[in-house]
């Protein structure tokens, strides 16, 4: 009996190895060369090609606008029998729900969304962890105590990041304020640069961002201010300004998803990995003084060990109301639907 089992499993594995390559597609919201968000997802795609070789075929399309136009793209890949389709922007949610229902044989993975179907799962990273760490650096380095934050859309993902950053700032510098400007775009270098300049005009000496382009970094560099990036090491764009960035590392996670799909163990889970899972991390440049870098690294270790949560109470909101008392922290559900600012943020959620 045991032998038959072994024989069958060997056969199955052989069959899986000889089967046609898994066709994987990625849909990006900005150009692959945006130097940020889409570039990092594309790194993840290249990681798949390196790891799986002939077992996968990958394709991608860049600059796909969010909204109904995206539907044709998802449909297009599903119609060609792509087995696994990654949509990497929040605004693809409606399209992915619709197309996943029409094509039950394909597997869909939506980054940063909250809706699932039988063959649509979601995935994201606990970016608030490295955001908090980058806030520590910002709080330690600002001199004017005005920190500018160029933010994309007032959705929970972005708000959560701003709050975590502000919590980090507050941790080392209770005087400093985080000023938020909304750009209402993920990728529009001109607009994002302008937004950063408006923050520099009101006295900010450090700029950070939740944007896909490095334009805010360049604005800081031009004015001799400091900057904290997002998505990737952006030092090439602002060599004298760039201090650090919360970064994405999608390779291992994409590998995990592909492996599950190949082995038939994929489920429509809602994956949310943190620093300890390797999906997100903090990148610190040489411009950060050793003392600050050491603090950041020890706090990072505390987060990995589960000893520290960026939203450990007490946490007050902008109205001064106590949101989390000493010893409390938000649940995942509360984090995922966050729609208020902590008390050292200046700006409105519109």
């Amino acid at each position: 009996m045991r032998k038959i089992f072994l024989f069958i499993s060997v056969l199955l594995i052989a069959a899986a190895l000889m089967a046609a390559p898994l066709k994987v597609a990625f849909i990006y919201v900005a150009p692959v060369g945006d130097g940020g968000w889409s570039t990092m997802h594309n790194e993840g795609r290249l990681h798949l090609e390196r790891v799986f070789g002939d077992q996968v075929v990958t394709d991608f399309i860049e600059s796909v606008p969010e909204g109904a136009e995206a539907e044709a793209v998802f449909r297009g890949y599903a119609q060609r029998g792509y087995d696994l389709i990654f949509g990497t922007s929040f605004g693809y949610m409606d399209s992915m729900v619709k197309v996943s229902q029409a094509f039950p044989d394909s597997t869909f993975m939506h980054c940063s969304g909250y809706m699932t179907t039988d063959n649509l799962g979601t995935y994201f990273g606990r970016m608030y962890e490295p955001r908090f760490l980058s806030g520590l650096i910002a709080g330690a380095m600002t001199k004017t105590n005005i920190i500018g934050y160029v933010a994309a859309y007032p959705i929970p993902e972005v708000i959560r990041g701003i709050n975590a950053f502000a919590m980090g700032v507050q941790y080392v510098n209770p005087e400093a304020k985080v000023h938020v400007v909304w750009s209402n775009t993920w990728f529009d270098p001109a607009r994002e640069k302008e937004a950063a300049e408006s923050l520099l005009d009101v006295g900010a000496d450090l700029i950070t961002q939740h944007q896909d382009s490095p334009a805010p970094q360049q604005a800081a560099e031009d004015r001799g201010a400091l900057s904290i990036g997002y998505n990737s090491d952006m030092s090439a764009f602002a060599p004298n300004a760039f201090l650090a960035a919360p970064v994405w590392n999608w390779g291992p996670f994409y590998e995990y998803v592909v492996r599950n799909v190949i082995e038939g163990t994929w489920t429509n889970e809602q994956y949310w990995g943190g620093i300890k899972d390797g999906v997100v991390d903090i990148f610190v440049s040489d411009l950060v003084p050793d003392g600050v870098a050491k603090l950041v690294m020890s706090m990072r270790e505390a987060i990995v060990q589960g000893l520290l949560h960026p939203f450990d109470g007490p946490v007050y909101d902008q109205t001064g109301a106590l949101r989390y008392a000493e010893g409390e922290k938000p649940t995942d559900a509360e984090l995922l639907s966050m729609d208020w600012f902590v008390d050292n943020v200046v700006g409105k959620i519109q």
Binding site: P31, G76, R80
Partner: peptide, 16 residues
């Protein structure tokens, strides 16, 4: 327009 989408999706042509 549809043909252009195909070029992007299956031949990795840049949007520009």
């Amino acid at each position: 327009l549809v043909g252009n989408d195909q070029l992007q999706m299956f031949y990795k042509l840049p949007m520009a």
